[in-house]
Design a protein around this nucleic acid. Structure first.
Lengths: 209, 209
DNA sequence: TTCATTTACTGAACACCATTCATTATATTT
DNA sequence: AAATATAATGAATGGTGTTCAGTAAATGAA
């Protein structure tokens, strides 16, 4: 009997499979960040890792599934940023830190931000999986807002509505800038970051009770 | 001498050229709206108007220039919507109407909204032309806000900052919805429109003095 | 060790895409 | 009627995502 052998081998196989997925994902992430999702082709990724295009399809169903994996990674990075920079004990101050971190994250990782919040969501991805991707980082915002509400620091009663509004404001500012739609206003390119932060701060002072 | 003839002919030619551009633009617009920008190919457009692909390049430099023309058209439609639905004499009420109109426009014309505000701006397009596209509809918002400020109806002093904030909120709400990023919140799909409007209204009441 | 089977991988092929350009057809001018 | 200028073509170029028959290597059973 080779049962002991079989077990060991299948475990190694599983490990190797995971390593291969990581190899592909790593190359994809790097190239998505450098050249953007659209300009990165399966062929390019295959070239980079020195495998044939077909091989990638043995590990990922299609390009969207690859995007999906990269998205998960990106949401993780955002949550990390929140945990690092939004540490104030005071809920409202922490909320301000979350917003500032969000905006910085967007401006400093434009391609990543694109993948996370602007790119058309792959329609084939099942909803539950998609939801779970952004959940954790969104929860950070919700928790902070919940504390603000219970301590009566902001004008909202409904946490969901509060989260929607704050997120929409931050996303609106970042995405309009990333898509160059602010050119219609004549803001100096150098000061744009300052302007966005100022807008966010003003908004936050509006919702403070 | 055939000078009289030359003039007549060159005018007709100019007219025909314009008609041809309109023919292409019309087909492109229709197909962009139905299938989206990415899925509409030059070949498809050529097929639809019963010309060869090459012909389109005699009238438009590339696909981006075509997008550009469609964008101009779309911004015109938005301005029209503002003029139709934001008619209140009272500046703040009018501001609320502008915002409501903007959100409705986005939800009802998702593909158009995409072209206008979400799609990556063609980088080859020169900035001045790009700016002029959105200018008029943006001016409508700015003018309304200016009145609000002079009458002391809102908390802002700076018109630019006010416009940025209001626009960001509206765009944030619409674009997060269009890109399905609100799935992370568990809002009933049917009531989403109501939720967005409610958020906008709450925001407006925050900035009211 | 030998042979059958499973697994991993390849790369050519398919059906698309935007764009270019030599060639052809038509319209205008001389 | 011939020469010229304009308009349109459609095949060709170099890309894209994805599939799949075929090959090579690793594994399992005898």
């Amino acid at each position: 009997m080779y049962l002991w052998k079989i077990m060991g081998i299948s475990e190694r196989k599983e490990r190797e499979r995971e390593e291969m997925k990581q190899l592909i994902m790593g190359a994809a992430l790097k190239m998505f960040l450098e050249d953007g999702y659209a300009k990165t082709s399966i062929r390019n990724i295959a070239d980079a890792i020195e495998y044939s295009p077909g091989t990638i399809y043995l590990y990922y169903k299609d390009k969207d599934e690859l995007l999906f994996e990269v998205q998960r990674h990106a949401y993780g990075k955002l949550l990390e940023a929140f945990k690092t920079y939004a540490t104030s004990k005071h809920p409202f101050e922490r909320l301000a830190q979350v917003c500032k971190t969000y905006i910085s994250f967007g401006l400093e990782n434009p391609e990543l931000y694109d993948l996370m919040f602007i790119i058309r969501a792959p329609m084939n991805a099942d909803e539950s999986q998609f939801k779970s991707n952004g959940e954790d980082s969104f929860k950070f915002l919700v928790d902070t807002l919940a504390e603000c509400i219970t301590q009566g620091l902001i004008v909202f009663n409904d946490i969901q509505l509060a989260a929607l509004q704050v997120w929409a404001m931050a996303h609106g500012l970042v995405s309009l800038d990333l898509r160059c739609r602010l050119k219609v206003m004549m803001i100096n390119d150098v000061t744009i970051r300052e302007t966005l932060n100022q807008s966010m701060e003003e908004y936050l002072s509006c919702i403070r009770k």
